[in-house]
Structures are given as C-alpha cells and as structure tokens.
C-alpha cells in the first residue's frame, strides 16, 4: 500500500461506505483489519488450515459482492463473521455426508455424559494467563466432534439463541440443547484434565 494512504485512519463505517462505492483500496483495509478474526472463526469450526484459508477468502469475496446489502444493523466484522460461519456450516454438511457419526455423538445419545464425566469442582482456569488459557481452550475444542464444537461456537462465541442455532444447523432445538450440554461438560472435563496434568 502507498505511504500516503487516505484510508489508513478511517473507521470501519467510512471504509465500508467507500467500498460500497467500489473502492477496492478501502475494502483492502477492511480485510487487513479483520482477516485474522474471520480466519480464526473459520479455523475454530473447520480445524484445518487449508479449509479455513479457503473459506475465509471465500467469505471476503461474498462480503465484497454483497456489500451494498450491508446497512449497518450490526458491526461490519459481525456481518462478515456470519458470512464465514454460513460457509463453514455448508462445508461441514458436505463433510457429514462422507463421515460416520462420531463416538462423541453416540456417547451423548446413550447418556455417556453423566456416566463418564462427574461434575467438575476445581476451577481449571485458575492461575492461567489469557494466552495459555486460549491455547488450552483451542486444544480442547479440537477434541470435540464437529457437531459439538459448532454448537458451542455458535452459542458461546457468537451468542446465538437455540432457535437460530437449530435453524443454521438444520436440526431440532432439542438436539441443539443436548449437544450444547454435552459440549460444555466435555470442555469442563478436558480443561480439568489439563489442570491435573499441570499440578501433577
């Protein structure tokens, strides 16, 4: 980018307006500002670098194509996050056609939760600095099935309500609730295991 970049200090709203008028340079700034967040969301759902790169780039392309539809009802990065999540969900549906059900889903359905995961009493996050905590959470997310991880991300990180999650994932609200419950309990169990390893 040139040294005297007029867009460098623009807030998102001004960059969006310029990009809506066709200014690719303004759009490039939006990408530079938010690419890591969009990529991180794609990676948290797909757990694969190549797919996350592909889907995050595709999300930016769709963002450019649909920019005129963005009216500022949410922040630009929230809007972009929704786009990348929808692309990831489409991709996960394609995965689902080719893979068998995960063991975790079977455990959830047969009530493995209460048999194998007693209620956690110690706080596994105590004493952890944020960077280390993020790393452990990321590791634990990687151990969940796609279905459990997706519902957890949509609820905990994107703050979507059950009904909307059910609609996006193409399942019932009851399924969302049981998957979310299992996912949370599994996260607690995994984080506690990491803590115990650290203490031993």
């Amino acid at each position: 980018m040139p040294d005297r970049d007029p867009y460098a200090d623009y807030p998102d709203e001004r960059l969006v307006k310029a990009a809506q008028r066709g200014k690719m340079a303004a759009f490039e700034h939006l990408v530079a500002r938010h690419r890591d967040k969009i990529y991180a969301r794609a990676y948290s759902m797909m757990r694969n670098e190549e797919e996350a790169m592909d889907l995050s780039q595709e999300a930016w392309v769709k963002g450019w194509q649909r920019l005129k539809q963005f009216e500022g009802e949410s922040s630009f990065v929230t809007w972009m996050t929704r786009i990348v999540i929808n692309l990831c969900l489409d991709q996960l549906r394609k995965h689902k056609r080719h893979r068998t059900e995960s063991i975790e889903l079977m455990e959830e359905e047969t009530g493995g939760v209460e048999r194998q995961m007693p209620v956690v009493t110690l706080n596994p996050t105590e004493g952890l600095e944020r960077g280390e905590l993020r790393k452990r959470i990321d590791e634990a997310l990687g151990k969940l099935s796609e279905a459990h991880r997706t519902v957890l991300i949509l609820h905990e990180f994107e703050e979507l309500e059950y009904k909307l999650i059910a609609k996006r994932m193409g399942c019932s609200i009851g399924t969302v609730m049981s998957r979310l419950f299992y996912a949370r309990r599994r996260m607690a169990s995994l984080m506690t295991a990491y803590k115990r390893e650290e203490l031993s």
């Binding site: 706080n123 596994p124 905590l133 993020r134 959470i137 990321d138 997310l141 905990e156 996260m187």
Partner: peptide
C-alpha cells in the same frame, strides 16, 4: 465456569 471461560478466551489465530 465453562461459559465464563469461553467468553473470555475466544481462541485467536
């Protein structure tokens, strides 16, 4: 505890 932990530490990449 789980909800609080997740909301404070969304993984970054």
């Amino acid at each position: 505890m789980v909800s609080g932990m997740l909301r404070e530490a969304d993984p970054v990449r």
